[in-house]
């Protein structure tokens, strides 16, 4: 079942008298992203594929796409991929990794997928210490279905299903799933990153590289949360989302390693 991909490749590889220092990774397909302007999803896609390129593991990498805006992640990532049901990505990844233990397996999920409907799968996958990388995009909203409240939506945050702001009385508190997962012995590396500025992107890349390295060493589950934006769902310009992330999201979801291996830098 092949997917038609209009090629839109227009990426020059040379400029007069200069060295190429940065270009679109090879393992990203040529297809232009369908995401809204300024969305973090495609940044994370790109960085993930950059890491696959640099580690030279395209032929050994298998990804699992979620249900949500990134449901079509497999259109962009030029690695073998499976599309899972909502919430089930880590169970699917478990199935793949268990029968192909020498491959690099990652799951990619949003907050509704990983921290609401798939909570059981999330916790038990980590609890088994499945030797996979779990990428978690936390933007506090259901983007694809039109901006509804997510388990990670901030208290008071307005969404289409919390039009007066999230109220604890009815919706409980935003769930800090990464913090919960650190309690499980199966979690080897748990970190929270963001791609709101160039340094954030650099740090994410390091975190993903380390995660694949740990997976190669069979260390257990690596969990990389990326606190992300949703310009359309938040009803902001992409530039405004950077401010919102810094002022509203990061205080609740502070960036940095939540659990790192003993002796790791």
């Amino acid at each position: 079942m092949s997917i038609e991909r209009p090629s839109n490749h227009d990426f020059p590889s040379e400029a007069e008298g200069m060295d190429l220092v940065y270009c679109r990774p090879e393992t990203l397909t040529d297809l232009p992203f369908h995401y809204c302007p300024g969305c973090s999803h495609s940044v994370v896609h790109r960085v993930l594929m950059e890491v696959v390129d640099e580690l030279n593991i395209q032929d050994k990498t298998i990804g699992v796409a979620p249900v949500g805006c990134s449901v079509f992640a497999y259109h962009y990532m030029n690695v073998d991929m499976q599309e899972a049901a909502h919430g089930r990505a880590t169970a699917v990844a478990t199935g793949i990794k268990r029968v192909l233990p020498d491959r690099f397996v990652f799951s990619y999920q949003g907050d509704g997928d990983l921290a609401a409907i798939g909570t059981a799968e999330t916790i038990h996958t980590v609890n088994r210490g499945e030797n996979i990388l779990m990428v978690f995009i936390n933007n506090g909203i259901y983007g694809m279905t039109g901006g509804q409240m997510a388990p990670t939506t901030l208290v008071g945050q307005v969404t289409t299903t919390s039009p007066y702001g999230r109220q604890v009385e009815f919706a409980g508190h935003p769930i800090k799933i990464a913090d919960m997962l650190t309690q499980l012995p199966g979690a080897y590396y748990v970190t929270r990153q963001a791609v709101h500025n160039p340094n954030g992107v650099r740090k994410l890349k390091k975190a993903l590289t380390k995660s694949f390295q740990y997976q190669k060493e069979g260390k257990g589950t690596c969990f990389v949360e990326v606190v992300s934006n949703c310009p359309s769902g938040w009803k902001m310009t992409p530039v405004e989302t950077v401010k919102y992330l810094e002022e509203q999201m990061f205080p609740l979801y502070p960036l940095g390693d939540l659990k790192k291996p003993d002796g790791a830098k």
């Binding site: 499976q82 089930r88 699917v92 990844a93 478990t94 199935g95 793949i96 029968v99 799968e121």
Partner: peptide, 9 residues
């Protein structure tokens, strides 16, 4: 869903 993943592999 583990079956899905493993069968797909």
């Amino acid at each position: 869903n583990m079956i899905y993943g493993a069968a797909g592999a």
